[in-house]
C-alpha cells in the first residue's frame, strides 16, 4: 500500500475543491492511502511570507513537516506552491544544521521537533513513480480523446538540488498521455501564466503572459489546457474573463491533471463538482462522456 500524508494546502480546498474531489477518486482507484494532516497551516505560500521573514516562513513550514514526520510518513502535495515551499524548506532543514537548530528552538516551545527524516513529493511524482504509468494506463476506462496543451506551472520545475527541472513536468505530460489525450507542443510551455505579476501590472500579466500562451495553445489546436497548480488555474480561468476588457476572447477549459485522470478512470463528471471551475471544464467533460 502506498501511503502518504496528504497536504491539501489552502487554495485547493477553499477555492477549487473539485481538484480535491478528483484527487480522492484517483487515490482510491490507484490504491494510494492519503492521510489527513490535522491542524496544518498554509505551507506558507512560497513568495510573500518568505520575502517578509524567511525565519518565520521556515518555522511554519517546519511545523507542517514535523506533524507529518510524527505520523512516520512522507508528505505529498497537490499544489505546486505548497510543493515549492515544503521541498525547499525540507532541503534547507536537512542540509543546514544551523537553520535546523534555530527552527527547532522555536518549535520546541510547542513540543514539536523536526528531525528531517521525511521526503516531500508532488502528487504527479507519486503517480508516476509509486504507481507507474502502466498501472495508470490499465485503470483507464474512458480514454479522453482530446488535444490538450500542458501548463506545468513554474513551481513544478523546483525540486531537490541538482534535479532535472523537466523531471516532474515530463511525468505530468506522460500522465496526460496515459488518459488518452494528445498533448500538443506549443513552444511556450515554460512561460509563466502571469499570476504573480497581477498585483504589479495586471495588463502586462494578462496580455504579455496569459494571452500569448492561450493564443499559441489554440493555434496548435488544443481543446483544453491541463494544469496542476491552483494559482495558475485561477489565472487561466479569471484571466480569460479579464482579457475581454482588452478585446481578447478565449474560452479554453482549464482542467487539473487529477480531474483529467479521474474522468479517464470512468468517474462520472457529476461526481467531480466540475462546476467549481470558471472555464467550461464541465461542458468539456460532458462532451467527452457523450462520445
Amino acid at each position: 500500500m502506498v501511503k502518504y500524508v496528504s497536504f491539501l494546502g489552502c487554495m485547493i480546498p477553499l477555492r477549487l475543491p473539485s481538484i480535491e474531489i478528483a484527487a480522492k477518486k484517483v487515490f482510491e482507484k490507484t490504491g494510494i492511502e492519503a492521510v489527513d494532516l490535522e491542524g496544518y497551516t498554509c505551507c506558507p505560500e512560497p513568495v510573500i511570507s518568505r520575502l517578509i521573514d524567511q525565519k518565520a516562513w521556515l518555522a511554519a513550514a517546519a511545523r507542517n513537516l514535523a506533524m507529518a514526520e510524527e505520523k512516520g510518513l512522507d508528505l505529498m502535495t497537490l499544489c505546486n506552491g505548497c510543493y515549492e515551499t515544503l521541498i525547499e524548506a525540507n532541503e534547507t532543514l536537512k542540509h543546514d544544521p544551523k537553520m535546523l537548530k534555530e527552527t527547532n528552538q522555536l518549535l520546541r516551545e510547542f513540543g514539536k521537533q523536526y528531525k528531517g527524516t521525511i521526503d516531500v513529493k508532488h502528487a504527479v511524482e507519486v503517480l508516476a513513480e509509486d504507481i507507474g504509468f502502466a498501472k495508470l494506463k490499465g485503470l483507464v476506462k474512458k480514454p479522453q480523446k482530446i488535444k490538450v496543451a500542458m501548463h506545468y506551472g513554474c513551481h513544478l520545475y523546483r525540486g531537490h538540488e541538482g534535479e532535472d527541472m523537466m523531471r516532474k513536468p515530463n511525468m505530468m505530460k506522460q500522465i496526460a498521455q496515459v488518459t488518452g489525450a494528445t498533448v500538443v507542443d506549443y513552444g511556450l510551455e515554460k512561460l509563466c501564466c502571469g499570476y504573480p505579476g497581477m498585483q504589479a501590472d495586471e495588463e502586462f500579466s494578462l496580455k504579455e503572459r496569459l494571452a500569448l500562451k492561450l493564443k499559441r495553445m489554440e493555434d496548435m489546436g488544443a481543446e483544453a489546457v491541463v494544469l496542476t497548480c491552483p494559482a495558475c488555474t485561477v489565472q487561466f480561468e479569471t484571466g480569460q474573463v479579464m482579457l475581454r476588457r482588452y478585446g481578447i476572447r478565449h474560452n479554453l477549459p482549464c482542467i487539473n491533471i487529477m480531474e483529467l485522470l479521474a474522468l479517464s478512470f470512468g468517474v462520472p463528471s457529476k461526481e467531480l463538482s466540475l462546476d467549481f471551475h470558471r472555464s467550461p471544464v464541465l461542458q468539456l467533460a460532458q462532451k467527452m462522456e457523450a462520445i
Binding site: C10, P17, E20, D36
Partner: peptide
C-alpha cells in the same frame, strides 16, 4: 460534494 465542511486546517 461529499467533502468535510472544511479541510483540517489550523
Amino acid at each position: 460534494a461529499g467533502l468535510p465542511r472544511t479541510p483540517p486546517l489550523t
